[in-house]
Design a protein around this nucleic acid. Sequence first.
DNA 1: TAGGAATGTCATCGTTCGCCGACATTTCCC
DNA 2: GGGAAATGTCGGCGAACGATGACATTCCTA
Lengths: 94, 94
Amino acid sequence: MLVRTPADLGAVIRDRRKQLDLDQATLAKRVGVSRQWVIEIERGHPRAELALVLRAIDVLGIRLDASVGPAPDHPHSESVDIDGIVARARKAKP
Amino acid sequence: MLVRTPADLGAVIRDRRKQLDLDQATLAKRVGVSRQWVIEIERGHPRAELALVLRAIDVLGIRLDASVGPAPDHPHSESVDIDGIVARARKAKP
DNA sequence: TAGGAATGTCATCGTTCGCCGACATTTCCC
DNA sequence: GGGAAATGTCGGCGAACGATGACATTCCTA
């Protein structure tokens, strides 16, 4: 699933937790946070700590992949690096 | 790239920013944060705000994908949902 | 080499996190 | 329906965030 907002993240975490049949308390213990925190995260709390979120994701066996561009295709993509070329060109004669 | 830690995130953001030939101040302004924040994030600050990180990622045109399992293969994977089946089975007679 | 732009550092300040503990509510089996 | 487990809510507390503004350092380039 594509993650754009904290709410997306929360949904992913909650779904996966249920999929694994874990209750919030158990997940909290495994991640090393309070049960409160799990509740807030699953709600889509926007100001959550990055590291804790990543730990939760890891505990749940979720993979987070960062790729460039909103298009879900990548036949060769990055070997061309159009953005870089344009950027450098633009900078040449400011 | 696979994102596991705040440092990974920082690296992704920094690389992409340079790829687009943006300086920290410009990125900061576009994301709506201070330049300080950009510096800290690129350093891998573990306690950054989730929403700000996601906004930065979005501004940079980076896609974040959440999939299940650390294995990079998915021939059919989720249509079987082995985890769910096992979890439910385990719960049947506690 | 001089100048400026980009990057990194510092101290201060208001705001909010995440934790704790207890309580309310919902959900789900028997 | 009854009761236990899971989930959500409340107030209070220490710690840390992120913003600001000024300053130091590194890196280009004219």
